[in-house]
C-alpha cells in the first residue's frame, strides 16, 4: 500500500507546485539577467565579468544536484524509499546539463582572461570528472532494462562518485591554481562587491528554482511511466490467466 500511497501523494503535491515554481524561476531569471547586464564593468575583468553570473550559479548547481542525487540514492538504496531512485534519476540529466554549462562558460571566460580555453588545473579537471560521473550514471539507466535493478546499481555508483564532490569544492583551496577561490561563501564578509553579489544571488535562485521546476516535471513523467508499466504487466498477467 505504501508504494502506491506515496507516489500518489507526491503527484498531488507536484501538480500543485509545478506552475508556481516555473513562474518564480522564470521571474528570477529575467530579473537576474536584467541585473547582470546593468551591473557596472569590473575594473580588472571588464565586461567579461558578466559571464560570472551564469558560470558561478551553474557550478553551484552542478554540485548541489549531485549531492541531491546522492542523498536520493541513499534514501532509495538504504531506506528503500519508493521514490528515492526515481528522484535521483530525474535529477541526473539536469545536473549534467548544469555541469556542461559550467564547463563551456568557464572555457569562454578563460579565453579572454587567461588566454586559453582550458587549463589542466585541479578545479577544471575535477569538474570534468564530475561530468563524466553524471554520464556514467545516465548510461547505467540506459544499459539496464529492469528499473528496479537499474535503480539499485546506479545508486551504488552515485554514492561512490560522491567522493568527487568535496574534491571539486576544495580543489581551489588545496592546490594553488589559476582558478580563483570562492569569493561569496566565506564566513567573513563576502569579497564580492554588492553590485555583483545581488545579480549573482538572484541568478543562483533562478537556476535553483529552474532545477526544481524541471525536476518536478521529470518526477511526474517517471511516475507516469511506472504506472503504465505496472498496468501493462497486470494486463499481460490477467490475459495469461484467462487463457490458461
Amino acid at each position: 500500500m505504501l508504494t502506491y500511497a506515496n507516489p500518489n501523494r507526491f503527484m498531488q503535491l507536484a501538480r500543485r507546485l509545478t506552475r508556481p515554481v516555473w513562474g518564480l524561476s522564470l521571474a528570477c531569471l529575467i530579473i537576474g539577467l536584467y541585473m547582470a547586464f546593468s551591473a557596472p564593468a569590473d575594473y580588472q575583468q571588464g565586461m567579461t565579468v558578466r559571464i560570472m553570473f551564469i558560470h558561478v550559479p551553474a557550478a553551484w548547481m552542478s554540485l548541489f544536484v549531485y549531492t541531491f542525487l546522492t542523498v536520493s540514492s541513499i534514501f532509495g538504496l538504504v531506506f528503500r524509499h519508493p521514490l528515492g531512485h526515481v528522484a535521483a534519476k530525474s535529477a541526473a540529466l539536469i545536473g549534467a546539463g548544469f555541469t556542461l554549462i559550467t564547463l563551456i562558460t568557464g572555457a569562454l571566460w578563460g579565453k579572454p582572461m587567461w588566454g586559453t580555453w582550458w587549463v589542466w588545473d585541479a578545479r577544471l579537471t575535477s569538474v570534468l570528472v564530475l561530468f563524466f560521473i553524471y554520464l556514467g550514471y545516465l548510461f547505467i539507466w540506459k544499459a539496464i532494462e529492469d528499473p528496479l535493478q537499474a535503480g539499485r546499481v546506479s545508486s551504488v555508483l552515485a554514492i561512490v562518485g560522491f567522493v568527487n564532490v568535496p574534491i571539486v569544492k576544495f580543489s581551489v583551496d588545496w592546490w594553488n591554481t589559476l582558478h580563483q577561490p570562492a569569493s561569496v561563501s566565506r564566513f567573513d564578509a563576502p569579497a564580492l562587491h554588492s553590485d555583483y553579489l545581488w545579480p549573482l544571488l538572484v541568478m543562483a535562485l533562478g537556476f535553483q528554482l529552474l532545477f526544481f521546476a524541471l525536476w518536478l516535471l521529470r518526477m511526474q513523467t517517471e511516475i507516469f511511466k511506472q504506472k503504465l508499466r505496472v498496468r501493462r504487466l497486470g494486463l499481460v498477467e490477467t490475459s495469461n490467466g484467462t487463457a490458461s
Binding site: 563524466f132 544499459a143 539496464i144 568527487n164
Partner: peptide
C-alpha cells in the same frame, strides 16, 4: 550482467 559490460565498467572506473 549488462551486455558489453567492459565498456560500461571502463566508463565508470576511469574517473
Amino acid at each position: 550482467g549488462v551486455s558489453r559490460s567492459g565498456l560500461l565498467a571502463a566508463l565508470m572506473v576511469m574517473p
